[in-house]
Design a protein around this nucleic acid. Sequence first.
DNA 1: ATTAACTATTATTTAATACAATATACTAAG
DNA 2: CTTAGTATATTGTATTAAATAATAGTTAAT
Lengths: 107, 107
Amino acid sequence: MNTQFKKGVLELCVLAQLSQGDKYGYELTESISEKMTLATGTLYLILKRLKDEGYFETYLVESAGGPARKYYRISEKGRAYYRQMRKEWYEFIAQVDALLKEPENHD
Amino acid sequence: MNTQFKKGVLELCVLAQLSQGDKYGYELTESISEKMTLATGTLYLILKRLKDEGYFETYLVESAGGPARKYYRISEKGRAYYRQMRKEWYEFIAQVDALLKEPENHD
DNA sequence: ATTAACTATTATTTAATACAATATACTAAG
DNA sequence: CTTAGTATATTGTATTAAATAATAGTTAAT
């Protein structure tokens, strides 16, 4: 799949997933991987960045079959950022649509 | 606007515009700028790259009020690439939608 | 012991856009 | 004539996010 399309959008997807409830990094990688190809280490940098900016808090929970899971919980600031970013996303794809669907653009 | 969202998509927009008829670089910048913010020099590198890959041919036409305009004409290869890329784009945004709209994701 | 599955982290590379400067041609204003 | 402004193309550098790939720790199974 087109790697470039994901720029900025993975961040949006992470925010969306965490707005639905706390998740740990590996779990996020798995759930987003169901919808698009995703390299294993990719999400951790996004998570770190968003946490550093105050959009998430984290806590550790012991795991039965591996190292402790680091859960991410979205903050109010994170929710506001998510709403804003989601709005921008939908506006953006509408504009792209307008460019792709201009007249004479048969097929 | 979110710069990252444009990654890969500007290329798609250029292909879409040229699939509707020949245009010169400045003209493309103007028409795409109507839908999204776009720095002045940005498109030229995209145009050069796509031309180098055989998706466009170019020709010069004298201009009344400035340097000669370099027109870009899409090739058959370019049209095929455009169809493929447009397909990937719509599949991609559908997958993103699926992630944003999963249950419990109220607002 | 070894392997495999689960989980986290991080250094390096790659690719596309933003930014900003340069250059050219022409027109209009002073 | 000179200067400013608009139209047009080109290119070097900076920024940023994802891919790649390597490292490492924990537990269970062979």
